[in-house]
Simulated assay, not measured.
Amino acid sequence: METPSLFKRCFGEGIGTALLVLIGPGTAAFNGIITANNNESTTLADIGVISFAFAIIVMAMIYSIGRLTGCHINPAVTIALASTGHFPWKEVGPYLLAQCVGGTIGAFGIVSVLGMDGVLIGNLGATVLAPSTGYIQGIFIEAIAAFILMFVIMGVAVDSRAPKDWGGLVIGLTVGGIIMMTAGPTGASFNPARTFGPYVVDSLLGGNINWVQFPVYVIGPIMGAVAAAVLYKYIYSSEKLPLIKENSHKEIGK
């Protein structure tokens, strides 16, 4: 089977990331509108619904574009795979660009669905630190979240010995579980492109965005994902986990 061109794979990554942002942060933005209009606070049940939306779209993307792109749809995942030899470094830049562009398009998609309420009230589901969460703490929390995700990805999608056809379900549910745990303190991004898109569009359309916090959602996820990939490779180093050839790809996730 011929390997799809880099352009086609990047195009797929852009689509996947756009749909991730549209459905995931879009659900968070819609919930923000509902709670604001009803003068209510966000509950754990609300977070559960948002988590489930993320889980669904991650599973859907893995099973639909995973064969084409590997379905990274997350710069931290791409960098972590490259750092352990499972993805060619020369393709990292194009993948990251595609993911960030896709995240921005997805954020515009939220506006098309929810209108300006999605920006001014729902803030396009942009991630922010809770008032009680410090900057370094936020980086640490985001690193933990990305570590969990990447460790699972290595085990169920990258490792050739993983059970077949279960990767999408397991990774999607893992994403949902992580969001339930970390949504309160950081907004549960663990994906720089997922945060980048809403930040850009919010800024362009008059939303309330604090770009000072953006490095939290870049440094933390990359640190955590790379650490997980390196640790997994070290644990199984004696078993010689196979590397992906330069022009190959695996189904991954968020």
Rank of each mutant, 00 (worst) to 15 (best):
M1G: 14
T3S: 14
P4A: 10
E13S: 10
E13H: 10
G16E: 05
L19Y: 09
I34F: 03
A36S: 14
N39I: 03
E40H: 02
T43K: 01
S51A: 15
S51T: 11
V58L: 06
A60D: 03
M61H: 08
I62A: 12
I62K: 03
Y63V: 15
I65N: 01
T69H: 07
C71F: 07
P75A: 08
V77F: 10
I79S: 08
T84Y: 03
G93I: 14
G93A: 14
G103M: 04
G106Q: 00
S112E: 01
S112D: 05
S112R: 04
V113Y: 02
V113L: 12
M116R: 03
G118H: 01
L120V: 03
L120H: 13
G125A: 09
T133K: 12
G134D: 09
F140Q: 14
A143H: 00
A145C: 15
M150V: 11
V170Y: 06
I171P: 03
G177R: 01
G177S: 10
T182N: 10
T182C: 11
P185E: 06
F190A: 09
D202H: 11
D202Y: 00
L205M: 15
G206V: 10
G207W: 04
N210L: 13
Q213E: 15
Q213H: 08
V226G: 04
A227G: 12
V230H: 07
L231W: 02
L243S: 13
G253N: 12
